[in-house]
């Protein structure tokens, strides 16, 4: 609760948390706010209408309601952001804790492989994965999760190493606890702080990344209401319907901004020495 108290004093972090809660609520109840149908059904009579009473965010080039598409887009973006963070964190947890805890040749092998992968910028790595597996939601998630495994692995390894050298791990060893149980019971719970901060920030990055991929047409495929894909459509009508790019873009910005603000707040709360 100490964490919560210190977080509460951080106004930007509170703002971030509130926006995240609103986004989650909107994502869960999207169908009640406006049925998915409205965002998918094409209506040639209502094409490219600017915001009005019936369509508060206007309609796109197929006459679909942009408001509906934006709120259903929250579902996709939040899902991709959190799911890919979990996947890459999990893989990195296994690799990083094994490398950091056992050291020696295992560590050497894992880290040299990670170093080599890090010579390829994340975006390129993801592009290669998408090129190999094809487009679509699932493949996109694999692609962007892969690109953040190396960074997470390095982080987890360094945290694990710093903990593995402490006395209480030595004590656990002396009492005959198995290596595997030491990792699960003692090392990982004690490395949660930096991991929580990095995961929160990672959600922001993944949301941006996924939107970027859908924007270039290699991510979530139409007619799914993904924010990045909506911006790609809006780009075609920039002159005629500039309002089309406003709402999806603002949504991406708000979502990633609030996770970044929360992550920053958590870091300050968990690491008091940075505040001074």
């Amino acid at each position: 609760m100490e964490l919560f108290d210190s977080l509460r004093k951080n106004k930007p972090a509170v703002f971030g948390l509130i926006v995240i809660v609103i986004l989650v609520v909107v994502a869960i109840f999207a169908d009640m706010i406006s049925p998915y149908e409205r965002g998918i059904r094409q209506n040639s009579k209502a094409r490219l209408q600017p915001p009005c009473a019936e369509h508060i965010f206007g309609t796109d080039h197929f006459g679909r309601d942009v408001f509906t598409r934006v709120i259903h887009g929250a579902r996709i973006s939040l899902f991709i952001g959190t799911a890919t963070t979990f996947i890459s964190m999990f893989v990195a947890l296994v690799l990083g804790s094994v490398a950091g805890f056992y050291g020696g040749i295992v560590d050497e092998a894992i880290m040299r492989a990670i170093d080599t992968v890090m010579c390829i910028p994340g975006m390129l790595l993801s592009l290669a994965v998408v090129a190999a597996l094809g487009q679509g939601l699932g493949n996109l998630m694999v692609a962007i999760a892969v690109s953040s495994v190396p960074g997470f692995t390095r982080l987890i390894r360094s945290v694990v190493i710093s903990i593995a050298e402490t006395d209480f791990i030595e004590a656990a060893r002396a009492s005959g606890t198995s290596e595997f149980m030491i990792i699960i019971r003692h090392v990982l719970p004690n490395s949660m702080g930096p991991l929580i901060v990095q995961s929160t920030m990672s959600i922001a990055r993944m949301i941006l990344f996924a939107a970027g991929f859908s924007f270039i047409g290699l991510g979530v495929q139409p007619p799914a209401p993904e924010w990045g894909a909506m911006l790609a459509d809006a780009r075609e009508f920039l002159r005629r319907a500039p309002y089309l790019m406003f709402f999806p873009g603002t949504s991406i910005l708000l979502a990633s901004l609030s996770f970044n603000l929360l992550g920053d707040g958590l870091r300050d709360a968990l690491d008091p020495k940075l505040k001074l």
């Binding site: 970027g212 911006l231 809006a234 910005l253 990633s256 603000l261 920053d264």
Partner: peptide, 18 residues
């Protein structure tokens, strides 16, 4: 800094283009 780090660069590009 935190604002611009959260902005999608392609959206910023579209806005400036507009």
């Amino acid at each position: 800094a935190i604002f611009f780090a959260s902005i999608p660069n392609f959206w910023l590009g579209m806005t400036m283009l507009l």
